[in-house]
Every structure is written in C-alpha cells, then in structure tokens.
C-alpha cells in the first residue's frame, strides 16, 4: 500500500498505458523534458523517449489534429491541452472534427484518443486559466467526458479512456493535483459511465463531479455530524456516458436532489441532470431539484473573490439545510 497524489497518479496512469500498448504515445506542450507545468507527467520522457513522448510547439490545433490523424490509423494518442481554457483555440478540431468524423464517415473511421486537460479553479489564475468546462464537451455528440475526483479514479479511468475506441476528454482538476489517497493496487481499470458513491445517505442526493464531488463529500460528513442529515453523495465520474440508473435509484430513495457544479449557471450539466430527474422520477420528488453553481460570471482572481465564487463546503451544507429544513 502506497500513498499516491492525484498528480503522481496521472503520470503513473499514462506510463501504465504506454507500457501495455506500443500504440499509445503522448503529445503536448512542455510535457516531456519539463515534466508538465503541473508536474503531472514527470518521468515519462525518461522512460519512453522522444518518439513516444513528444514536446509540441504552442499549436493546440496542430497537436489535436496530429493526435486525431494518428488515431484514425489505429494508434492511441494521449494529447495534453495544458489548460482546459485553451480548448477554445482548438475547438474546431474537437467539436467539428474529432467528434463528428466517425458519424459522417458512416463508421469507417474510429478515433481512439484521449485529450487530457487541467480544468477548474482554486489557483487564483483568473478567468482564462481556471474555468470548469466539462459542459462544453458534454453538448457535442461523439465525445466522452470524464472528470476523476481522486487518484484511484485517475488510474482506473485513464486505463479505460486509453482503451476506449472513441474520443475521451479527460478533465483533471487543478485543485486536486495535491490530493492524496492510500492505494493498494495501481494497475486498475474503472469502466467509463459508472458513477461512484462517496457517502451513503437516505435524506438527500447530492450529485457532484471532480472537486465538487469531494466538497460534497466533506459537506455530507458535516451534515451527518452536526445536523443529523444523511446525504448520499454521487460522484458522476463521467458526464458522457452518464450513469442515469445510479441517479434514479438514489432519487427514488431520497426524494431530494442537489447538484453541485463548478461551472457558471447557464447550461451547466446540472440543468440536464435536473431535466432527466423531472422526466424519470417526478413522482418520487419531494421538492424541486436545485443547483449550486458558480454565479454566472467569469471567474475573478483575488483570493476572497475566487473563494466566494466557486461553491464551498459551507455553501453546500447551507443549501442542503435550506432545502430540507427550510432554514
């Protein structure tokens, strides 16, 4: 048993995939010699060499285009986009090319690639290096969307993402890179599309993703200790495919639902979940599905501003109490 950080689990997960399959290579900016700006890819160049760990120019379109073309021939590239915000400069390659080519070609072409990217706030980087952008990719048919909340999920979901025959966007949370976990076995696989329960409870269902799933779990511990509320916390792990069955099962038990999202309010993934619950579990609901999100603003930089924009544990606790006790 070893303690592993989320950061170290990223490089280990990539290394494990590259050891298993010669078709896997890794491409990105500053990923090789520098070991990544978040030091999440340290050691890969040394182990696999320049042919399989490629330092690319600041050319996000060229990086993802090259990854896509290579994937079309059957290779399994892992491409890094340093900050998820930079997806905006290569969104054509993601949304128009990678996502749609299989469909438009009537299934002639598979695109088995992984796009890893550092996502989310907490580092006071300001509005262009802190966004939580899972919902951008969720709305494009043809993309799988994964966002792990802990080191073991990084290991297990990366294994599945690399083996997946379809394109996967793998959102790593910047504020989780230092998160530690005791891990017994590192070479694990977790199917994409299976949510994880982080805390059991029958009073309310709290649904989160990545950092927000961890905060929801912390909130559930406080709710139990101090407020006698038993919250079930579901970590979705992936938005596409979505584990609707796990959500439904819990909502039928609890009748109350709160989604916790790091993205701004409009068109966040919680809105889709809320709509699905209305369609599938309306008679089980004891009240409206509610959402905690960031306000509909760009993310500000100063400590006090950012900390009060991204949903906190305290905010989640208060929202749950307000829902259940009307306080």
């Amino acid at each position: 048993m070893a303690q592993l950080t989320y950061r170290a689990s990223v490089s280990l997960a990539i290394a494990q995939s590259m050891r298993k399959d010669q078709k896997v290579f890794f491409i990105g900016e500053d990923v090789g010699a520098a070991g990544g700006v978040f030091k999440a890819t340290v050691g890969l160049l040394e182990e696999f060499g320049k042919e399989r760990v490629m330092d690319a120019p600041i050319s996000e379109q060229a990086i993802l285009g090259a990854a896509m073309g290579a994937a079309m021939t059957g290779l399994r590239p892992i491409a890094e986009i340093m900050f998820s915000d930079f997806l905006a400069v290569c969104w054509d390659i993601v949304a128009n090319q990678i996502a749609k080519t299989r469909y438009m070609s009537d299934g002639q072409i598979n695109i088995p690639l992984v796009i890893r990217t550092a996502n989310g706030g907490g580092s006071k980087f300001g509005a262009q290096h802190s966004q939580s952008l899972e919902n951008w990719s969720m709305m494009i048919p043809g993309l799988k969307v994964v966002a792990p909340s802990c080191p073991s999920d990084v290991l297990g979901l990366m294994d599945s993402a690399v083996k997946d025959p379809d394109p996967v966007i793998f959102y790593e949370h910047k504020s989780l890179y230092a998160f530690k976990e005791e891990i017994e076995q590192t070479d694990i696989s977790i199917p994409i599309g299976e949510a994880n329960t982080l805390h059991e409870g029958k009073d309310i269902t709290i649904i989160g993703l990545a950092l927000m799933a961890q905060r929801a779990k912390e909130a559930a511990l406080i709710l139990k200790d101090k407020h006698d509320i038993n919250a079930k916390v579901i970590d979705l792990r992936s938005l596409v495919p979505l584990d609707l069955q796990t959500i439904k099962k819990s909502v039928i038990e609890t009748g109350h639902v709160l989604t916790v999202e790091e993205n701004p309010r409009l068109c966040g993934w919680g809105a889709e979940i809320s709509s699905l619950i209305s369609e599938h579990c309306f008679k089980n609901l004891k009240g409206p599905v509610t959402r905690v999100t960031t306000p509909h603003v760009p993310l500000p930089s100063a400590d006090i501003l950012e900390d009060n924009t991204i949903p906190s544990v305290e905010l989640i606790v208060n929202e749950v109490i307000k829902k259940l006790k009307g306080e």
Binding site: Q61, G65, A66, M68, G69, A70, L75, I93, Q97, I109
Partner: peptide
C-alpha cells in the same frame, strides 16, 4: 481517402497525424 473537410485549415493538422503515424510505425 481519409475524409473531405469543410472547415478551412483543419485537415492540414489532421493529415500531419497520419504522416506522424507512418513515421511512428
């Protein structure tokens, strides 16, 4: 024929990818 592309410029980057695969393999 690895596709016909309707967004200007994209396929130059993608064509690099098949070329990269030939070099890699």
């Amino acid at each position: 024929v690895m596709g016909s592309y309707a967004i200007i410029g994209a396929h130059l980057t993608i064509a690099n990818g098949t070329a990269l695969a030939s070099k890699y393999n």
